[in-house]
Design a protein around this nucleic acid. Sequence first.
DNA 1: CCTTTTTAGGTAACCGCTTAACTCAAACAA
DNA 2: TTGTTTGAGTTAAGCGGTTACCTAAAAAGG
Lengths: 337, 337
Amino acid sequence: MKKSTIYDVAKKANVSIATVSKVVNNKGQISEKTRNHIKEVMEEMDYEPSIIAKALSGKKTKTLGVIVPNIANPFFGEITRALENKAREIEYAIIICSTYNQSEREEEYINLLLKKQVDGIIIATEQLDSDVLKKINKRNTPVLKFSVYADPNETASVTTNNYEGGYIAARYLLEKGHHHVGIIGDLSRDSEQKRIQGFCNYFEVHQSAVQQSKIISCNSELAEAKMAAEQLLVFEPHPTALFATTDFFAIVAINAALEKGLKVPEDLSVIGFDNTIYAQLCQPQLTTIEQPVEEMAQLAIYQLLKIIEEEKCAPFEQIVLAPKLIERQSVKSYNQD
Amino acid sequence: MKKSTIYDVAKKANVSIATVSKVVNNKGQISEKTRNHIKEVMEEMDYEPSIIAKALSGKKTKTLGVIVPNIANPFFGEITRALENKAREIEYAIIICSTYNQSEREEEYINLLLKKQVDGIIIATEQLDSDVLKKINKRNTPVLKFSVYADPNETASVTTNNYEGGYIAARYLLEKGHHHVGIIGDLSRDSEQKRIQGFCNYFEVHQSAVQQSKIISCNSELAEAKMAAEQLLVFEPHPTALFATTDFFAIVAINAALEKGLKVPEDLSVIGFDNTIYAQLCQPQLTTIEQPVEEMAQLAIYQLLKIIEEEKCAPFEQIVLAPKLIERQSVKSYNQD
DNA sequence: CCTTTTTAGGTAACCGCTTAACTCAAACAA
DNA sequence: TTGTTTGAGTTAAGCGGTTACCTAAAAAGG
């Protein structure tokens, strides 16, 4: 059975389509009687206005694009879930776009989203070359960067204070007596770099600089991450604690340690970042720095909608939330007193 | 800057919009010269046809809805990723819908997708009450069930043979000498039930029936799953092996065992299902039954598109793929010879 | 009782694209 | 030479809404 249109409703209710439209949108002056009648007819015919037609006549598409490196990665799965959940509350749909960190895919997806005339785009990837961003801006499509750095002149953003997160991790490890540490993270990602910076700076000020050789960069491939972790453990004596810029790296490091016969946290302490589901499922449970994903999602949707509706422009708001230490079991006190 | 339309292009190229349309869609008879000229103009103006307008004039929306319980769950994250990846190849966008197993959300999302006139819907949840399915069918929107049971008269489907998966797990455990086993799974989910059936049937035929008390049902909440696992371990002597209907349950079980002082696999063997990323990240690495997700996604998109394009109707094709045992380290041989 | 204002609803253009049907000239056939 | 094809484009209706502007009748004002 075909979807019924505003014309069908108008005909059956013996009114013009304009009247039906007004009833649907609660606009204009319509008598109670007519209004009710039309509503009944709509009910009967099971009428739902077409978002497509609405969009064509200049209204919103009620669709947002979300660009992430990979939806199957628990952190990005989690933020997508949170964003989707908030979007649903305002009847917005989410189109997901996994770029796999490939700029062609990124561009491809941006084009797709633009063609679809989404009302806004949430970007949670770092790659994005600035031409692409310019293209989006030219098309006047609002953009919000999520959990990654943004230029206030180009886009709004909602992030966690990564520097502070690293700082907190460093302070915690020092408090626990760890002076000899290693770091594993993806240095090609700006946000992870900042985590490391925060970490290193705290160490430098309160202890001594972290040796460059104890900072290993890798990407999120399991194999590469594992190699990076192993590299940190060949030192004799090996570091007593590891700071991993993501929970994933932390877990890989734990496993690498275990394979080498080291116990965690007895022989090696590990602290992660993000507080993904991994952190609760691994053994020992992971001490980590949490990003307040739920709150970030809430704010992101709210901000983006504000830009969409009020047609705001630069400079855009930059919201930075505080990370939080979640203490579990992967770090033990190393104070030899 | 406003998006340029077919009118802008037509005017600038001094032709009618119909001609432009034909060039865009490679239809009709257009001279090489005109064609090239129009193409140049399009390039210059950076023209992209509006999918919205296209959709309104009776074409496809190039959008698919994907309904899952929760995108943040690694299994569903993984299948969404795979589906998205295949969809991208044919320029389709994916709208994700996490129902959290709540039927209101499910209905809400279905309405949203229908309003948006998606070309097809992929359903990977079990809940879906049949009225909703009827509603979709009434609207003539193709549906494909993914990894869950379907009625051939209502929808197409792509699934793994769950019964066989359970069967394989049972055979493997018996081969390894485990006669005393426990099962943990979500019995409210049809697919998990089938896994358990396959498992039990094999046991019954080749050994002896699995005791009812050693089959514990739970949902995917961490706390509840943990309790279920603990229940299985109070028995004295405890089972030597556990079959978990998902990797998540398997990991929770492993952790519960560890907390109780049992070593895995030395004191307790565990086998999972799905072969999610968890399986590789946990310690010990999980032996599990794999669903061929990539292949399933490929087939799902292919089948759904076939239904969309050829307007096929009942009975719909039901594709069932074979699961596969992935041997890792969580099961040890218990043959006491 | 007549004029003005308000209320209730209708008319028609527009959003950007597709496509059937049509036109007109050139090429071809008889 | 004339009728018929064929090629290359154009015209205009339709998809399902929104909305500025209009109209007619009812209510209010004098």
